[in-house]
Write a protein that binds this DNA or RNA. Structure first.
Lengths: 255, 255
DNA sequence: CGTACCTTTGACGGCTGTCAAAGGAAGTGG
DNA sequence: CCACTTCCTTTGACAGCCGTCAAAGGTACG
């Protein structure tokens, strides 16, 4: 158990991309004025609802999922502290995913129009928010693409590494051992496999000295081999922004 | 062969989302000032390059793909006439996909900074471009998620329907029979299966009276059953924008 | 302490990948 | 216009991964 339930705000997240001016930080802070505790299992929005509220996740984990007519559930996003939730579906007349808290936590809801407001006031923030949204999409695409081409062991390896690097980004205290509030059935819904096969594969991976998952946490035993097996490339998740864009920003934004 | 090689510009694409003012249209037209013919097989960018140029696709088809170390190719995007190419990777220091023309065609390159320019000048255009980018992402996510959970027949059904509805959106002349410049191996790279199994499954689907694919085109034989098999929901690709956002736009943009 | 949920294990079958070879279509050069 | 080559598609045999069904064992929670 390496991670303490500390609070991570969106500013911490976005500052990975760009240095933000004090003005920008104050503007951003207005999005997190109304922290609100949420219970484990609480639903933040339903698939049929119109996206008019965005959320920042300050504490806890959440996930979004599709529910098909046949009742199958496919998890799409895993949200970690600091993440902006709901921006992908913003332009559509309906979310088309349910979002549920995986743990208890704290979220800050704010009206979607506020984002347009920010777009008009700060090009730097606009860019940073775009980068965060693009990053979320890349994470999903990479996960799905890699899942498509690999066997169960590589799927699990890939996802565990995704979590590892995403958590390390916002929480320095994360080491080879970190808390993960996901059941084996959650892995299944994420990776498109049955929980039975998840169980089998996890046992196999532990026997091979790759990783160990308990109910509460995950221990990475052989990082190098996991990277090799899954073809995971941490560099693809870089926080570095496109220099062509940052150069085109109006002012270099002094801190 | 139902589709003629007509020209579709980005304005045609974006106008599906929002009525654009004359000012907006003129601004948008500046992006398409330099049409440039491209040959089949021509590479528009490489995975390692920095995204400093965006493209609009006026004629022809293109696709983007990941190339893994082992040489496997995974196709991510299929670009059709009217599509904006390159916006997803814009904020990253490198594309991480190669983009190649599937047919000969016409593209209009323009510098990435121009987009920031547009963002500052027109909230309506900004919203429309975001919607187009979000739509592309939804297409990819839906494809991958559905692929994950279904067998080969449903995978193919889903992708064929994706093409069908995307093409119909920009080309009224598309009917149950439409030109598709994709090989069976391309289907394989898109759907994460071998070309051998694509062949087997296509034969099976033709025998079942579902669809018929030749080298040049695809004929949809039983739309209803394809929809049922693949759990494809055309409504998820709606062009309707989130009313909450359009209501928040500064001016209703008279045509 | 009891119950509900989660994980583990086993047997079995089907879908899909791999390897291999033949058949067919398109493009090239004579 | 034909011959040749190359690429694409089809077909078959076989093996392996993973889903399904079922039941038992373990853990958390009231």
């Amino acid at each position: 158990m390496a991670t303490a339930p500390q609070e991570v705000c969106v500013t911490d997240n976005l500052m990975h991309f760009l240095e933000l001016s004090e003005t920008d930080k104050r503007l951003l802070a207005t999005l997190e004025q109304t922290p609100q505790p949420v219970a484990k299992g609480q639903q933040l929005w339903k698939a049929s609802e119109r996206p008019d509220t965005l959320y920042t996740l300050r504490r806890g984990w959440a996930y979004s999922m599709h529910r098909s007519e046949s009742g199958e559930e496919q998890v799409l996003d895993i949200f970690l502290p600091g993440d902006l939730m709901g921006i992908r579906e913003l332009t559509f007349p309906a979310h088309s995913t349910d979002v549920v808290m995986l743990t208890s936590g704290v979220v800050c809801p704010f009206p979607a129009e506020r984002l347009l407001d920010i777009y008009q006031r700060s090009p730097s923030l606009t860019l940073a928010i775009h980068a965060a949204a693009a990053r979320q999409q890349v994470i999903i695409s990479k996960r799905l693409v890699n899942i498509l081409r690999h066997d169960a062991r590589a799927k699990i390896a890939h996802f565990v590494l995704e979590l590892y690097y995403r958590l390390k980004r916002v929480d320095e205290s994360v080491h080879r051992n970190f808390a993960v509030p996901l059941l084996q059935s959650d892995f299944g819904k994420l990776l498109g496999m049955t929980k039975v096969h998840v169980s089998r594969t996890l046992s196999e991976m532990e026997n091979q000295g790759l990783l160990r998952k308990t109910r509460k946490d995950i221990q990475i035993l052989d990082l190098d081999r996991l990277l090799e097996i899954s073809a995971f490339d941490p560099m693809k998740l870089t926080d570095q922004l496109n220099p062509t864009l940052t150069a085109a920003l109006p002012s270099p934004g002094p801190s």
